[in-house]
Computed example of a mutant assay.
Amino acid sequence: MNASDVMTADVETVTPDDEVGEVLARLADVNFSGFPVVDEDDHVVGVVTEGDLVDLFEVDDRVLWIPIGIPPIVDTLTYAFDLPGDDVDIAAHADDPISSVMTTEPVTVDADASVDELLDLLANPEQDINRLPVLEAGKLVGIITRQDLLRGLKAERGAAGAA
Rank of each mutant, 00 (worst) to 15 (best):
G34R: 02
S100T: 08
P16Y: 01
T8P: 00
W65G: 04
L140E: 08
A111V: 03
A91P: 01
V6P: 00
R151F: 07
E126P: 08
V115M: 03
L83C: 14
V14N: 06
E19S: 14
I66T: 08
S100E: 08
G21Y: 13
N124I: 09
T103P: 01
I66K: 09
L64F: 08
R146C: 00
A123K: 10
L121N: 12
E105C: 09
E19R: 11
L56G: 10
A162L: 11
V45T: 05
V115N: 00
T145Y: 01
P71M: 13
F32C: 03
V23H: 00
L153F: 05
F81M: 06
T104K: 09
E136T: 02
A163F: 12
A9Q: 13
I70S: 15
G85D: 07
D61P: 05
V74A: 11
A113V: 00
N2K: 07
A137E: 15
N130S: 13
V54F: 14
A162Y: 05
V141C: 01
I98R: 07
D87R: 10
D52P: 02
E156M: 06
E136P: 01
D39W: 11
P72S: 08
V115S: 04
D116N: 09
L24V: 15
A92V: 06
P72C: 11
F81A: 13
D148P: 00
F81T: 04
E58N: 15
L119D: 06
D42E: 08
A111N: 06
D112N: 03
A160P: 07
L135H: 04
P84K: 12
V20M: 02
T15S: 11
I90F: 15
L53V: 06
G142R: 00
L121I: 14
T15P: 02
E19L: 15
D61W: 14
D112V: 03
R146T: 09
D82I: 10
G138L: 08
L122W: 01
Q127P: 02
N2C: 14
P67E: 02
V74Q: 15
I129H: 12
D120G: 13
G21F: 11
S114H: 13
V109W: 01
E12H: 14
D17T: 15
E19D: 11
D41L: 11
P84M: 07
L150A: 15
S4W: 02
L77K: 15
V59I: 09
I90D: 08
E22F: 10
W65M: 12
D5R: 04
E50C: 04
R62Y: 08
V44A: 01
I98S: 12
S99P: 01
V48A: 04
V59C: 09
I98G: 05
D116I: 11
L149K: 04
L132Y: 07
N124R: 11
F35E: 00
A28K: 13
T49Y: 12
E50H: 04
G51L: 13
V141Q: 02
T103G: 08
A28T: 05
G85E: 07
G51C: 11
L121Q: 08
A159I: 14
V30C: 05
V30W: 02
L118F: 09
P67Q: 03
I98T: 06
N124W: 05
H93R: 05
F57L: 12
W65I: 15
S100L: 04
V30D: 03
I98L: 03
V107T: 10
L53W: 02
D41F: 10
A159M: 06
M102H: 04
E58W: 13
R26F: 01
A111D: 03
A137I: 00
A9M: 05
V141R: 06
